[in-house]
Design a protein around this nucleic acid. Structure first.
Lengths: 328, 328
DNA sequence: TCACGATTTGCAATCGGTTGCATGATTCTG
DNA sequence: CAGAATCATGCAACCGATTGCAAATCGTGA
């Protein structure tokens, strides 16, 4: 049972292979009658075009790469899903690559990806900007949640939402607030800290800066310990995972959330909804981010060398149970 | 700047294209001196073979598909990572596809995958066995965490670990235990329930069966409510996510875990470690599962029509804080 | 009736590798 | 030292699609 190709279909329909090919790719060029016959035969034989053969001549793979530092981090799965949905809409598949947080692996992986994908979405907060620029020279490339002036990027801008979170705390009476810094190499961490600082400066709020802490549950526990040694009544955690660590640590030491301390997370991962108390956090518009990233990449693929445009989408503050009035 | 091909390298090294090709794919057939020259030139020109061209002639894409029902479910990311690592070891990339729980989408997706991948790993607890068999006819196919007699599969067998969990509860004094059933269409749910039932039968334990409940946090809350209406002092949840829902619901109703009820989850997802109290659960050997699945698939690809073999790897019970002595 | 344009189709080259077979060079064997 | 065996290399076909160009067909207006 040999493979079904345009040739088998051609023979069966007594037309040439070119006609079969055209029936699929440029249907308006073949007569209605022949087109029908060809498509019917294809359906009947269960024909599936060889993407290799097509890719060889068109130079496109109809596949995009998605590079994430750690698929295990709950921030990424919703992003993966959004990217995938957006890619499917333009007929592309997604090749997922997890660099396991290793910048070295990342470079190697981009190398592997080259030739297998038309372009790549890089959601990589840590790898060096030189490496990223290098990657972008070899392959259309869109940055996710990170900007580099000369590379196109899609970012979630949490500034406004963090202001909202601050106002929320302020209204609850908090005047001394801790900022639990994220990894120093993380672009997002820098942006978030900056936003919080700016908010505090605009208010009569004393900001206690702690950290940096690792962006893990354990890092959160460490942060929780540090937080308890201050007199801050509320804290901004770098992300939800660390916020959960903070909450767990406080629970372990008999401090109540939000009774003794209010906690704000960031990202609105699944965890934020399932933890007790529900975590007040900042949600990113994942579907829009994924869609925008795929759009931008697609544009970059079709017109390489275009102006590197930036898209920034605002996050939204989601109040839940982890923030409450300042203790009496 | 034209693409770098074996021809550019051939010209540069004054050898034929075949020799260049062989320098990469069958280096032992090329003299050391020429091989070195070719490889050096390739490195210098930053040559990357066209996977399309290679795939066209070899018939292989060096890519495997991984079909998951919901990447957002915390059970899957570690599996994705393990599969990816195992695939990388044999030089394959992974094409991730999320069917978003839709069996219809699944069929369509397998169709898309055909021709782009050498084979596919299907981690799909719900789709119909007919659909799976259909997919397997078109493409080498390995089932993950589900068995169908005539298809190769890799499963995590939690039977022994659930026995261990049961014994753990028994030693803590529990004699009335609830079984919170998972989705009725889920193969894993059926297996788990069966294991728990078997354990209870072998002991003087009264088993209270509740459910089925949806395998979500909300489903867990529903289950929690149901649980509180019984006099069971401990419960097996279908998975960690529902267990978290149960815990949250109990917390909301002033029931303590493990003070009033002990809870056992399943899967040992990230959530299980970050929730308070830490969840006693059954962990699956993800890395081994991924490795085994990729191995099996690879064998299936290289020798289609081989005996469909099954691999079953045992999970392990991980006691944490959500299980404690029966209340006085 | 003929030439011309529009439409439909086929021919053949091409994409970038891989591989069976033939050839030439070299070494080994008796 | 002839002949065989071994090794390195090149030639050319091939994988399955796409596509520029030319040919065939048809209708139409002059």
């Amino acid at each position: 049972m040999a493979r079904v190709t345009i040739y088998s279909i051609a023979k069966r329909c007594a037309v040439s292979a070119s006609t079969v090919s055209r029936a699929f790719t440029r249907p308006e060029l073949v007569s209605a009658e022949v087109r029908e016959r060809v498509l019917a035969a294809a359906r009947e034989l269960d024909y599936q075009p060889s993407s290799a053969a097509r890719g060889l001549v068109t130079g496109r793979t109809e596949t995009i790469g998605l590079l994430v530092p750690d698929i295990t981090n709950p921030f990424f799965p919703p992003l993966v899903r959004a990217v995938q949905a957006a890619a499917a809409r333009i007929g592309s598949a997604v090749m997922l690559v997890d660099s396991e947080e290793s910048a070295a692996a990342e470079a190697r992986l981009v190398e592997t990806l080259r030739g297998r994908v038309d372009g790549v979405l890089v959601a990589s907060p840590r790898s060096s900007s030189a490496a990223l620029r290098g990657a972008a020279r070899e392959l259309p490339c869109i940055l996710l949640n990170r900007v580099l002036r000369d590379l196109p990027a899609v970012v979630c801008d949490n500034t406004a939402a963090l202001f909202d979170a601050g106002e929320h705390l302020y209204k609850l009476g908090h005047r001394t607030v801790a900022l639990l810094g994220g990894p120093s190499a993380s672009w997002a961490a820098a942006r978030r800290s900056q936003a919080v600082r700016r908010w505090a400066r605009g208010r009569d709020v004393r900001l206690v800066e702690l950290g940096p802490f690792r962006a893990t549950f354990k890092g959160g526990r460490t942060a929780g310990r540090a937080l308890l040694e201050t007199d801050a009544t509320a804290a901004f955690a770098f992300d939800d995972l660390t916020a959960c660590g903070v909450i767990a640590e406080m629970a372990g030491r008999g401090a109540a959330v939000p009774g003794d301390r209010s906690i704000v997370g960031c990202d609105d991962v699944l965890l934020a909804q399932t933890v007790t108390p529900g975590l007040s956090t900042v949600a990113a518009p994942m579907d829009e981010l994924g869609q925008a990233a795929v759009d931008l990449l697609n544009r970059q693929i079709e017109a390489p060398g275009a102006e590197p445009s930036h898209v920034r989408l605002p996050g939204t503050f989601v109040p839940r149970a982890s923030t409450g009035p300042v203790p009496a």
